[in-house]
Design a protein around this nucleic acid. Structure first.
Lengths: 190, 190, 190, 190
DNA sequence: GATGAATGAGTCTTCATTCAT
DNA sequence: GATGAATGAAGACTCATTCAT
């Protein structure tokens, strides 16, 4: 192959897209992205067929990154609480450490640009978490809460914590802990 | 230009904007709005200086509506739990009954279009709720949670419930109750 | 109405389109047209929804002009030959006098841009000619030639004459006459 | 660059170009051509300096093919009518058998892409026909028609026949014969 | 005040051509 | 020579906003 498609360039575009979309919203021009990535406007379209594909690929990319962050060091053998706490900490830490990715993820989840395939692919890395939750409910460790509702609640609670962790960097760990305690009270038996 | 006369027209535009933004996102063209409102494209700009102003005014409008819905019949004399429950029920019921307003509100809160003034004005109607929460914390009825964090948590939890109430209409009241129970466990002492 | 859509402007755009398309082909940019017409690029699209509509409207416009040129002074009462001669003369004279229109018409007829509706509308003004031809065939004045084939032959022959009339302006009427004589020999009995 | 070696590749590109241009017009992208030809996008440009050169070379190629089709079995010794009939049959048969080539030829002749050199080269193979026609005029077999006008008329008439032969395959030979009869009446003495 | 035509900068995308590999 | 990624100038069309009527 003559000059193979460069993975660096692809990553540069995705990274630029993350930054630009975070700063200017999903309606930001592709030219701003190619510009920041240091490639020609047309080059973006050799790596991503069109803007929608870019959006969807970006979504999956971030989701994988996030899943990686959450599952490294996952204490499979420990208590439900410990495992949830691990996820909670990783998720909120990731969000605070990667505000652009986090913001873009939120925007993408609300937008109409995600294909159902992307959504499926995006939730795949989180299957283990769901399995754990279902188990815990069956074991009567958690309240009888539909699994999806539980996930959604965790998501929402973590988002709230993250927001405060970002806004109050000095109390970051305090809000991280407080958020989890509240979440745990919300879902655990007795 | 001073505030022009026809309040009907202003309301028609705001109502159309709600519908259009809910269906097509905040980047929907103003022409779609004026069109649905039954006024000329230019007319929109005699009622709202520009699109950003429209967005901010719409935000405040919806917030006021929402506050109205939440405060009518507010049981000032009852227990903290009863009062929170009232707010919870009103809020979620309003969201389910007014999906367009609710959706637009979420979009606006995430967008970069809101001025800090709008945000301030938008939270004004909720002062009473905040006061109540602070009181309850002092009275040791609630956990020691910063007031803002408590509000944000309530907001997030209610959003989650609403989403499920809308998606599962038959279990609407079940999710409404479940959501509140979880929220109450999260914040109440012991 | 505030500033009603100006027929002058519409005509200016159509006229500019004729000139530009004749000079640079149907793929000429719309900006060249708006530019020549003395309007903003966007204005073109308030008069014609998109380029295809412009193309189709232009086609019908030219066809009507052409039909007008051919049918004014049409000698309904004279012989078939006289009537065909009238049409021949008008058509070729029109083509020579309006080379841009003529060229664009040819291009449009070959392009894939014409809707079947446009084609129908475009041939409407020529119904009388077709009726005459069919009559003449029945009356045994003309050879037994399918009406459509006869029309097509006339069209092709006239095009050929026009081309030579344009290229050899001094012999214009000679070629006009020669072309018709040949055409008449081709179709007439005996 | 000197003419590169693989004649196969050159032919593949020309053949692909014929098909693509016939289907999608002369504005079809060169990438579609290289793609169909099974070569890289850049390769096309080692065989043809640019798109215009490709267009002109294709024109000459088709013209030569067509001349071949018309002159094989040419009855040099027979009557003018027989010789013209041979040409007529070969031309129309070729057009019907090679619709893509035929269509592209028409498009090229109308386009502004042909250099005068190409046009000269393209008409070279038809010199013999022209010579025959001039002879016949001198011999008073044909009407006194300028040679170029006669050629143009034959071209136009044959095109018309071809169009009907293609559209009405069942009456193909009928239209072939009818067209020639009309053409012959148009040009022959008495 | 109301109207909607006019404006033109801005957007995504295409494509002939170049050139590094 | 062959390849196909890279380029960037167009091009069709949109849309917030202005302003003549």
């Amino acid at each position: 192959l003559a000059r193979p498609r460069s993975d660096d360039k692809r990553k540069a575009i995705l990274s630029a897209a993350t930054q630009i979309f975070a700063e200017r919203g999903l309606s930001a021009p592709t030219s701003a992205i190619s510009n920041l990535a240091g490639v020609a406007e047309g080059t973006l379209f050799t790596y991503f067929e069109n803007k929608d594909v870019l959006l969807n690929d970006l979504y999956q990319e971030i989701k994988v990154e996030l899943a990686d962050a959450m599952m490294t060091g996952f204490p499979r053998k420990k208590s439900v609480r410990a495992r949830l706490r691990h996820i909670w900490n990783c998720y909120t830490a990731w969000g605070v450490a990667h505000p652009a990715q986090h913001k873009v993820l939120s925007q993408l989840q609300l937008s109409d640009n995600l294909t159902s395939e992307s959504q499926k692919a995006g939730s795949a890395p989180f299957i283990e978490i769901q399995a754990m939750a279902e188990d815990a409910v069956k074991q009567r460790i958690l309240e009888d809460i539909p699994q999806e509702f539980l996930s959604a609640t965790m998501e929402a609670s973590a988002q709230t914590s993250m927001a405060f962790m970002t806004t109050h960097p000095k109390s970051s760990s305090k809000f991280q802990a407080l958020g989890f305690d509240m979440f745990w009270r919300a879902i655990s038996k007795k």
